[in-house]
């Protein structure tokens, strides 16, 4: 009962995680940091935090993100600025510059099957050091990895992923750091929020504690250290596909 009372006697203390600007939100990101960056393609990327990191000019980063944006957008900006030393992700086909850099050997790229990638991050946030998966058995992904048989099938051991920082993007967030994502912009953001020492969330809509329905919160506040309202949302569409009037029957 006492704990409960303390919890609700909040004010502008530690449970107010709101910072005013993206710059302030990423103030302690250091050279050589490992950073998880949410998003699938350009959908649900923390675009304001990425732009702030480009302005800050932090270098020798290891980025953990499904994609590297596209040339000139999202993580593509960090790539162009030469800030990424090592990238871990599952698909980089939209980024010509990265392809050139990899073939020239100026960046280290680690490609991970997408399900293994998401589970490694989930495990990182859940205190699970490693797990077994059937994905990639017998392929180059399995090279050098421990395998084990369960019920007659071979599985690969994969290790968890953790980071110094996670940059995530939510649709709505409150000052305590509770987050709600929107549609497919959720993607890797919830797991990344759990797997870093410092999770920084940028939100489109910043609301008061209590305004988000507790039953509908996707990322509980415990995972989030800082919340910032994004200043500018380009919300760029990578592939605009529309239905023609006559072919509306798909």
């Amino acid at each position: 009962m006492l704990a409960f009372c303390l919890m609700i006697s909040h004010n502008a203390g530690a449970m107010n995680k709101v910072v005013e600007t993206a710059e302030e939100a990423i103030r302690d990101v250091f050279d050589g940091a490992v950073i998880m960056i949410g998003g699938f393609g350009l959908c649900g990327i923390p675009e304001n935090l990425i732009r702030a990191l480009v302005r800050k000019g932090t270098r020798n980063l290891t980025t953990i993100s499904n994609n590297v944006g596209v040339d000139g957008v999202g993580n593509g900006l960090l790539l162009e600025a030469g800030q990424i030393l090592h990238h871990i992700g599952s698909y980089v086909g939209e980024n010509k510059l990265l392809e050139d850099m990899v073939l020239k050997g100026t960046i280290k790229l680690e490609l991970v099957p997408q399900g293994t990638f998401s589970e490694r991050i989930r495990a990182g946030g859940a205190g699970i050091p490693a797990f077994f998966t059937p994905t990639g058995v017998g392929t180059i992904v399995a090279e050098g990895k421990e395998t084990r048989e369960f019920d007659g099938r071979t599985y690969l051991m994969e290790h968890c992923l953790k980071a110094d920082f996670a940059f995530v993007k939510a649709w709505k967030g409150d000052r305590m750091g509770n987050l709600v994502y929107r549609k497919t912009a959720r993607n890797f953001n919830p797991m990344m929020a759990t797997a870093a020492k410092v999770t920084i969330a940028e939100v489109e809509h910043l609301v008061e504690a209590g305004q988000l329905d507790g039953d509908h919160i996707h990322t509980p506040s415990v995972y989030v250290k800082r919340v910032v309202r994004g200043e500018l949302y380009e919300r760029r569409i990578e592939r605009r596909t529309v239905r023609k009037a006559e072919a509306a029957s798909r």
Partner: peptide, 22 residues
């Protein structure tokens, strides 16, 4: 299906990064 023109939602894409509907 793909959305009607003008109904594209940047938060609603398929695995090919194409805008879709629900």
């Amino acid at each position: 299906p793909y959305p009607a023109e003008g109904q594209e939602d940047p938060d609603l894409i398929n695995a090919g990064k194409e805008t879709v509907s629900e």
